[in-house]
Each structure stands twice: as C-alpha cells, then as structure tokens.
Simulated assay, not measured.
Amino acid sequence: MNNVTKKLIKKLSGVLFISTITFSAWAISLGAAKQQGLVGEMSNGYLGVVVNSPEAKSLVNSVNQKRKQIYMDLARKNKITMEQVTTLAGKKALAKTKPGHFIKNTSGQWIKK
C-alpha cells in the first residue's frame, strides 16, 4: 500500500468520525433509521434507502449531500479522483456497519450484515 493510499485511509477514518459529529443533529434519526432497517450503507460510500418513505429519502439526501462535499474536498486535497475516495469510503462504511443493519451487496440487493 503506497503512502497516498495510507494517508487517504487515515483521513477517511477521520472523516467518518467527523461526519458522525457533523451529523450529530441527525445521529438519533440516522441511528434509528438504520436500526429500523429504513436506510443502509452502499459500497459507493453513500447511504441508500431500503424502505421507501419520505423521511428515509430526506435523511439519505441530507447525509449524502454532506458526504459528497467531504469526499470532493478529500479528492481535491489528495489529488485523486472522486471514484477513489468513494470506493475507500464505501469499504470503510461497509466494514463499520453494525450486525443487523442493512448493506447493499454486489448484486444490488439489500441484505442484513
């Protein structure tokens, strides 16, 4: 693993932590939505709607807008592509997903971790 990748992984870990703080206003809603199986993590680094509802859509849109901005900043700062950032973020998010919460598999189906 080269130094750029190591630095990016370290920054993504920090970003995921910071995004938890950034989303503190959403923390209960996001946590509850994941616990209830309304939303889940995807391999592209973004949140997805598992159960179609206006509340889930609104939450997903809000969280994903914030994530996108963070990812764009990381890509610019590290002179890498958004695809590289979102791929690494997706791997981290899927790895950190709690058992019983939903993730989207490679077939595009929502499964419980």
Rank of each mutant, 00 (worst) to 15 (best):
G108Q: 07
G100C: 04
L12F: 10
M82D: 05
K68V: 04
G40E: 03
L88N: 05
N61H: 13
N64P: 02
V85F: 05
W110F: 06
K66S: 12
A89R: 04
S29N: 08
K113T: 03
I28W: 10
Q36D: 14
K91D: 11
Q35H: 09
V51Y: 05
N2L: 03
E41M: 11
T86S: 10
I80L: 05
W26D: 12
L30S: 04
I103D: 00
V85E: 03
V63I: 14
G48Y: 02
K98F: 06
L74S: 03
K104M: 12
G31N: 09
T5C: 09
I18G: 07
S107F: 07
Q36P: 07
T106W: 04
N3T: 13
K98S: 08
I18S: 12
L38I: 02
I103M: 01
M1H: 14
L38Q: 08
A32T: 15
V85C: 05
G31A: 08
I80Q: 02
K6E: 10
A32E: 14
V4K: 15
V51T: 13
N52Q: 14
F102K: 01
K34T: 01
L16H: 11
E41Q: 13
N61G: 13
I111R: 06
L38H: 08
K113L: 07
K79C: 04
M82Y: 09
S43A: 15
I70C: 14
L16F: 10
A33M: 04
M42C: 11
D73T: 09
M72R: 14
S58I: 02
I9N: 06
Q65D: 15
S19N: 13
M82A: 07
K96E: 10
L16G: 12
K112Q: 15
N3H: 13
Q36G: 10
Q109W: 06
T97P: 01
L30N: 04
L16Q: 11
V15W: 07
M42Y: 08
G48R: 00
A56K: 00
L47R: 00
N105M: 02
K77S: 15
P99C: 04
F17Y: 14
V39C: 00
T87H: 08
G31Q: 06
D73H: 08
K7C: 11
A93W: 02
T20S: 11
K104W: 05
K91E: 11
